[in-house]
């Protein structure tokens, strides 16, 4: 991980700088303009926190943000539970029939166009006559994010030595206890990483949410998207800046956590 920085050639430095600029320049501009006092997005009118104030007085926007956070938390939690169980079944249940089919099917949502999964979920909810709102979005996001959790946890599980659990059983643990006392602590970083991945995926999804949500329960991205269609208000910049800050904090926490736990496990969870 700790490469020698001073071995970078001028060419490498330039391409690194260009790459970073390409990635972050738009975001930096957005952040700067969120502190713009002017009503017009493209005209600089001096520094102010006006649009942040605006946001905290915007009932509809606040509701949408709160909705998004709840959906993200609930769907990430369910997805983590189901995804971890699927990963355990795939890695540990070596010889069950139809395993290749099962693992293939799990990965389908990774490559399925979101419009299609959104549409099919909508059809399902309509067929079930389910009232669309918080729960339908949460369930839809669970199906979307579960396979990401499975991938993350599965790779960690597969790298664990099978004989660790055997050693635990040898020392008096029944199979369930062996899993809980040896395997689980070792995959916790991956589970946490999976949860955070699911959380952020849910937080920024527009497509599936717009198919599965109902009137009066828009998520933040849907809300932002519909506002932007009427013209970009500087308030959107303020909201986006807060979302970016929030996600940055989550990522920093996640990488700190995985660094902490990797100092006691063998390899860090992929993050």
């Amino acid at each position: 991980m700790a490469r020698k920085v001073n071995s970078l050639s001028p060419f490498n430095v330039t391409s690194l700088a260009l790459g970073l600029a390409f990635l972050y320049l738009p975001i930096i501009i957005l952040v700067i303009y969120s502190f713009n006092d002017s009503r017009l997005v493209t005209v600089w009118g001096g520094w102010s926190l006006r649009w942040y104030r605006e946001f905290f007085n915007d009932r509809a926007m606040l509701d949408a943000a709160w909705m998004s956070l709840r959906v993200a938390a609930v769907s990430a939690t369910i997805a983590t539970l189901l995804g971890t169980m699927a990963a355990v079944a795939l890695v540990r249940g070596e010889r069950f029939r139809g395993r290749p089919l099962f693992s293939g099917m799990l990965y389908a949502p990774l490559v399925m166009p979101e419009v299609i999964s959104g549409l099919s979920l909508l059809l399902l909810f309509v067929a079930l006559n389910a009232e669309r709102g918080f729960w339908t979005v949460s369930i839809a996001h669970t199906t979307l994010t579960m396979c990401f959790v499975t991938v993350v946890v599965q790779s960690r599980l597969a790298s664990l030595d099978r004989s660790l659990e055997e050693a635990a059983m040898d020392l008096g643990c029944d199979p369930v206890r062996a899993f809980l006392s040896v395997t689980l602590p070792l995959i916790v970083p991956a589970i946490a990483a999976g949860w955070m991945l699911a959380f952020t995926l849910s937080l920024d999804d527009v497509v599936i949410a717009s198919f599965t949500t109902g009137p009066g329960s828009a998520t933040l991205p849907i809300r932002i998207y519909s506002e932007v269609r009427l013209g970009v208000k500087p308030e959107i910049n303020a909201i986006s800046t807060m979302v970016i800050a929030f996600i940055a904090v989550v990522i920093v926490i996640a990488s700190l956590a995985s660094k902490l736990s990797s100092s006691q496990g063998e390899s860090a969870a992929p993050l």
Partner: peptide, 29 residues
């Protein structure tokens, strides 16, 4: 089952629990 046998085994690849220190590894059983 393995955990009910009055038999203990030392594994060729050691199979030490990476999240536990030396003392807790030895004390595990």
């Amino acid at each position: 089952l393995p955990h009910e046998r009055p038999v203990n085994m030392m594994f060729q690849n050691y199979a030490l629990f990476p999240h536990l220190d030396v003392r807790d590894n030895i004390a595990f059983g």
